[in-house]
Computed example of a mutant assay.
Amino acid sequence: MSEITRLLQAAESGDQKAAEDLLPLVYQELRRLAKARLSHEKPGQTLQATDLVHEAYQRLVDVTGGDDAKWNSVGHFFAAAAEAMRRILIDRARAKAAVKRGGDRQRIEFDAIEHPAAKRPERLLQLDEALVKLEQSDPQKAQLVKLRFYAGLTGEQAAQAMGISSATSDRHWAYARAWLKTAMDSEEAD
């Protein structure tokens, strides 16, 4: 009887130490199985092979599983591991497709989004210089500009992030926009 088979039998009878000793012996093979399964998934998959192995292994050695956790051989164990991985991937795919988790949304790569300032890089450089000056005189308003312009937050979201009221955020935004426009126009005139 191989060491793996002995540990499998001990683990299924509830020996927690055997379950812990089993993982190092089967880990590389489980990782190979996980990589093979994940290679058939769509690009952008957030689940890594290691995560899949750990979750599948947890399901396999769960001693509260009752009669489902009986393995006749090493091959049977790996077949059960492959089935556990398949079920994990199916569950994740169903969860991702659920409307409440954004399943009706289309993924767009960040690089594909072109910022309006990218069309006129010289204006972006002018904005940066003006923003540095604003930051020296009024750091809070400069922070608001960064949140709104670069992070794309709404006025309400930026206010919440900064811990200020929406009304204060609106006032700061109006002031900062006017200040930056004046600074950029005066620099352009020079």
Rank of each mutant, 00 (worst) to 15 (best):
H76S: 11
A159Y: 13
V145W: 00
W173Q: 11
V63E: 10
N72A: 14
P43E: 10
Y27N: 06
R31D: 01
M1F: 10
T46D: 04
S186L: 07
L33I: 07
L131Y: 09
G103D: 10
F110M: 12
D190L: 10
D62G: 03
Y150H: 07
L30Q: 01
R148G: 00
L144T: 08
Q160C: 06
A95S: 14
L30V: 03
D190G: 15
T46L: 09
L144G: 03
L89W: 06
L153R: 12
D67G: 03
Q106K: 11
K146V: 04
K96H: 12
T50S: 09
L33P: 04
D104Q: 11
D185M: 12
S166I: 00
D138H: 06
K141G: 00
M162P: 02
E41Y: 06
V26F: 02
D51N: 07
S137E: 12
V132N: 01
S13Q: 15
A10W: 02
K100T: 15
R87Y: 03
D15W: 12
A95E: 15
S137G: 00
A79N: 11
A81T: 09
L38A: 03
P121S: 09
R123F: 14
Q126N: 05
A81K: 03
I108Y: 09
E156D: 13
D91C: 08
L89K: 03
L47S: 02
D111G: 01
E129N: 10
K146W: 05
L89Q: 06
